[in-house]
């Protein structure tokens, strides 16, 4: 009898645990929204009369050196490789030296590389100063000497909240619209070169 009661209590506990977990999940949902839903909001903000299909929308942010960065950063190149990384992510860090070299090699060919250290802020864009400094150190150590944008809330709403694994790399044209696929995971310098060449052909 005692054991039966124990069993029943355990089952009850399981059910309660599952129920309460659904609650937690719902609270989290409020922060995320489908990127597509924000297109009309951007229209209202900018008075644009065409749908903004760019990956990151319009944003005003700073890079790791404190310089202001907006979506205009993409306009200066035909193709920009946006590499989303994190300070805790080993594979991200391992490929950054290669990305630094690629940035230098393609600088005069209209291809730029931009990094976004995802864990330096929370989803509202509040900076964690410890992780910020970590990111600065990592960039210095890996010699990934290109712009790294400290993300702001609009970028999370637009794209970053749906990033579930790092590194994730997307390519955009000068308007900030996506070119090619989303590339998950790290790659070798040779593999990235191949992809860059292929996508460069598409944006010419």
């Amino acid at each position: 009898m005692k054991k039966a009661i124990t069993m029943l209590l355990s089952c009850l506990l399981s059910v309660l645990m599952l129920a309460s977990c659904q609650q937690t999940e719902n609270n989290q949902q409020n922060g995320n929204s489908d990127p597509q839903q924000n297109v009309s909001a951007d229209n209202a903000d900018n008075g644009e009369n065409y749908a903004d299909t760019s990956v990151f929308g319009t944003f005003t942010a700073k890079d790791l050196d404190g310089n202001e960065v907006t979506q205009e950063i993409f306009a200066s190149n035909k193709l920009t490789m946006v590499n989303i990384w994190a300070t805790f992510c080993g594979p991200c860090i391992n490929e950054m030296p290669d990305l630094g070299e690629l940035a230098a090699e393609y600088a005069d060919k209209g291809v730029g590389i931009v990094g976004i250290p995802l864990d330096v802020t929370d989803e509202k864009g509040n900076i964690d100063s410890y992780l910020y400094n970590e990111a600065v150190d990592i960039v210095a150590t890996t010699k990934a000497a290109y712009t790294h944008i400290v993300p702001v809330e609009s970028m999370f709403v637009r794209k970053l909240a749906s990033v579930t694994a790092v590194p994730e790399t997307v390519f955009v044209d000068s308007q900030g619209n996506q070119v090619g696929d989303c590339y998950y995971g790290a790659r070798s310098k040779a593999q990235w070169t191949e992809i860059i060449e292929e996508l460069l052909g598409e944006v010419q």
Binding site: K3, A4, M7, S14, M17, C21, Q22, E25
Partner: peptide, 25 residues
């Protein structure tokens, strides 16, 4: 009850797994 007693370990294994890995979403 006897059947439960005989298979109590399997029942606990399954129940605990359902508990710890029950995030169906």
């Amino acid at each position: 009850i006897k059947k439960i007693k005989m298979n109590i370990r399997l029942i606990v294994q399954f129940s605990f797994f359902a508990l710890t890995n029950g995030y169906l979403k």
